[in-house]
Nucleic acid binder design. Structure first.
Lengths: 130, 130
DNA sequence: ATAAAAATAATAATAATTTCTATTATTGAT
DNA sequence: ATCAATAATAGAAATTATTATTATTTTTAT
């Protein structure tokens, strides 16, 4: 199936690329809806999945039971706040040779790993003090 | 609420402790059902959640959208096969000071991290060659 | 043995996501 | 520009994992 252009898909990608808060499918839906009032949630899901499969965006699992989407497909780590649920990028170097460590005395073959951090974000931390 | 004994809960824990394949709630349900034919899935969920909250078992997220449960509550790492979906324990040392690394130049406060590995398990790897 | 409190079974409800289908939009060829 | 093919859409229904509700049954302290 030879992938045709669609302005909905374009708008979804456009919107996501202007964001660094890792929205969910529903978050994307709510916003893109302003430009395409009768876009359907199914279309948002389908296109997010398609873009992720094409490698143009990344699907991010931060353990809250909802998929988030990230325009940055380069390897980096995420932080999720247990208080407000926000997702942020972390500025740390890659965790080196962790896959090789895991591969030692392992029967199968390690392809990669998923790592994310949780805790309390700066905003919530400051709010707690008041 | 003063936690009363229940043979369903006992059976659930018993079953889980005899396992090292990290079953899901539904997997537990299917098995415990053999002993308690009219146990309900809700009871399984409620007790797994209760046992996890008590710290007697661990809830494990391996990114497949389903919660798995592990009788081993000590910190260790998991591998999930992209082929068959099986979950296995990995025998590696703790990833040292990864939280501290993340905390450096981070606004909030890192409480911990979730890390799991994926790839192809030994069984599936061997099956592919044939 | 009894009664209060907790746990259960069965079912309904919810949330995230996927699938289905009839209609619409895109595209490559005329 | 027109036309057919086929991919994409909207809207709705279906699915999956999980949680909540409620009437009934177990457990346990007296």
């Amino acid at each position: 199936m030879a992938l045709k252009y669609s302005r909905q898909r374009e708008a979804i990608k456009e919107f996501l690329c202007g964001r660094k808060d890792h929205p969910t499918a529903d978050g994307v839906y709510m916003e893109v809806r302003k430009e395409f009032p009768n876009i359907s949630l199914g279309t948002v899901y389908r296109n997010l999945t398609l873009l992720a499969d094409l490698g143009e965006i990344a699907r991010v699992n931060v353990g809250d039971g909802v998929d988030h989407f990230d325009p940055n497909t380069k390897l980096h780590y995420h932080f999720i706040c247990r208080e407000c649920g926000c997702v942020q990028d972390l500025d740390i170097d890659n965790i080196v040779n962790i896959n090789e460590m895991a591969n030692a005395n392992f029967d199968g073959e390690i392809g990669g790993n998923v790592t994310y951090f949780y805790g309390i974000c700066g905003k919530c931390k400051r709010r707690q003090r008041s």
